[in-house]
Amino acid sequence: MSAVAKTVGAPSGSVYHRFPSRTVLLAEVWLRTVERFQHGYVRALDESPAAAARHVVAWSRTHPQEATVLLYGPHDFGRTDWPPEYARRADDGNARIRAALTALTGNDPAAFDRAFLALIDLPLAVVRRHLRAGEPLPPHAEALAEESAAALLAGGES
């Protein structure tokens, strides 16, 4: 907490006033980041699967530091120790994403898994190595995510 206060140039007491513990600080960092991402993602998915795949890459391009945070999971941010209201926020966000994908795929578990892979896992794979290396995303990254997601989703129709 002292390092955070020093980095932001605030008295450590003000950091503790806003975030009473390291656990709460980590929870807030994770949740703020994932909620910002999910807000745009759900809107993009309402538009089309292609827009959702592109959103992952475009958002990561625009917000590389936040996107790097999302390469880790909530458990890397101490999820098991979060106070209940923070865990509930995380669960609510996950439920929104699951509901949006279920609306797209119906109650078919295989179709849901295919959509999850095509629209979440695959676009994250497009950005992961670049973000971890601190490199800019290539200009064709959005198109690659969209084309790959479309091919994977089309494969489920045979």
Rank of each mutant, 00 (worst) to 15 (best):
P49A: 12
Q38R: 15
N94C: 08
D46E: 15
R88P: 08
E47I: 12
A87F: 06
E66V: 00
V56E: 02
P64I: 12
G40D: 10
Y72E: 10
R22P: 06
A52V: 04
D92Y: 05
R36M: 08
E28D: 10
L45A: 02
T33C: 14
H75Y: 11
Q38I: 10
A50T: 02
D91S: 11
W59R: 01
D76W: 04
W59C: 03
G73I: 09
R32K: 06
S21G: 09
T80C: 09
D46V: 11
H63C: 08
T23Y: 05
A67D: 04
W59N: 02
D76Q: 11
P64Q: 09
G93I: 00
T23G: 04
D91Y: 04
Y41W: 14
E28R: 11
R32H: 14
R22V: 12
H55C: 05
D92G: 11
G93T: 05
R36P: 03
D81W: 05
G40T: 09
H55I: 10
G93D: 06
D81R: 08
V42T: 12
S21V: 13
L31S: 03
G78R: 08
E85P: 01
F37K: 01
G73R: 06
R36H: 15
G40Y: 08
E28Q: 15
E35Q: 04
V24M: 00
A27Y: 02
L31A: 10
H55P: 00
L70Y: 00
T80Y: 10
G73E: 05
A52S: 12
P49N: 14
A44G: 08
A44V: 04
P84S: 14
H39R: 14
E85D: 15
W59L: 06
L25R: 03
H63A: 07
G93Y: 05
S60H: 07
P84L: 10
Q38V: 14
G78M: 03
V42Y: 01
L31Q: 04
T80R: 12
A90P: 02
Q38P: 03
Y41Q: 02
A58D: 10
S21I: 09
